[in-house]
Every structure is written in C-alpha cells, then in structure tokens.
Amino acid sequence: MADSSPNTSTRAKQKRSGFEKIIEAQQAVLLRAARRLYNNREDQAQDLVQDTLLKGYGAFLENKFEEGTNARAWLLRIMTNLFITEYNRKKKWEADVDFDNVVSEGSSGLEALQAPPADQPEAALVANVMDEPLEKALATLSPDLRVCLVMIDIEEVSYDEAAIALEIPIGTVRSRLFRARQRLHGLLQEYAKQRRR
C-alpha cells in the first residue's frame, strides 16, 4: 500500500539530502578517476561520473549502501564497473587486438608520449597537471591495466575492493597491477632517454 504520510516524505527528503552530501564530498575524486580512465576525455569522463552517481542513487534508495561505510570506495566500485562493462562491450568489436600491448588511439606508447600537444586533443587538459609525462604514459596503458593502477595507486582502493569492483580474482589484480607499473616504468624510462638525446 502506498505510504504518502509526512514521515515518508521526510524520510525521502533525508535520503536525498544524504546522497547530495555524498555527491558534494565525492564528485572531485570521481571526476579525477574518470578522467584518468578515459584519458582525459572530458565529456566521457563526465558521462561516467553522472552515470555512476545516478546508479549510486538508485542503490542508495534501495538501501544498498550502508551509511557510515566508505562511500568513496563504493562509488569507485560502481564507476569501474560501468567503465569495464563499456570497455568489454567495445572490446567485442576489437577482439583480435592485443589490448595489453596496444595503446589507446592506435599509437605506440613512446609515440604518444612524444606527440606534440597539437596532435593530442586532450593536451590542453593534461597541460594543467604537474607531471605531464606520467599522465601521458598512464594514458597509453591498456584499460585493463590502467584501471588497476588508477584504483589502487591513485584512488587508494584496496586489492580486495578492486577485485570485487572489477569482478576478477585478487591474483589477477596483483598481476595486472605489476604489469601496469612495469610498463609505466618502461615508458617513462624511454621518454627520459629520448629527452636526453
């Protein structure tokens, strides 16, 4: 039976304001993570954040979020889940590409690192950051590897939480994280060598 009593309405308002507080507190972190997942493509990053918050609100209304627990980790989990779902959908169309070796937009890692700003549509955004080579190197990692590194090293999500979010065994999280760090290191070394020449 419908319950439209004032109590219900107050509860709904409290829920809404509770979630709006979460949005206020977490949107910066979500935007930062989404930009990294989408290589600073602002529109896609904002889409992802919007979808994450909406999905989060749906779950919040269904009391799937335990108040007092880590809202940041919970929203990041929803976000990576959405990102991976979208990535897997695209991957189906590019099934014969080795995603661990290929880099985004089809260029080699080093080429991407060396590309002049004019060749990089996201350069204007990257230019605002302190460590441009690192941002660019991160952007050249395959999504599988990048998402592990972004979640664990940048967003401080635990291995366990990352495994749940990505729906993969924790051992796979560990090995992907290692490969991500290894590749990032290699790219940065190459870039440093090139600059010294």
Partner: peptide, 22 residues
C-alpha cells in the same frame, strides 16, 4: 620510485571548477 611518483597524481586539480560537475 615509480610509486612515489604516481602518488603525486592523487592531488586534485588546482582549478576548482574541474573538481565539480558542470
């Protein structure tokens, strides 16, 4: 060394607008 460097990416953008949804 790599991780020390990656951790610097935890800083939020200095431009306040970039920290909010439009």
């Amino acid at each position: 060394a790599l991780r020390t460097r990656v951790i610097t990416l935890r800083q939020l953008p200095r431009d306040a607008e970039r920290n909010l949804l439009p």
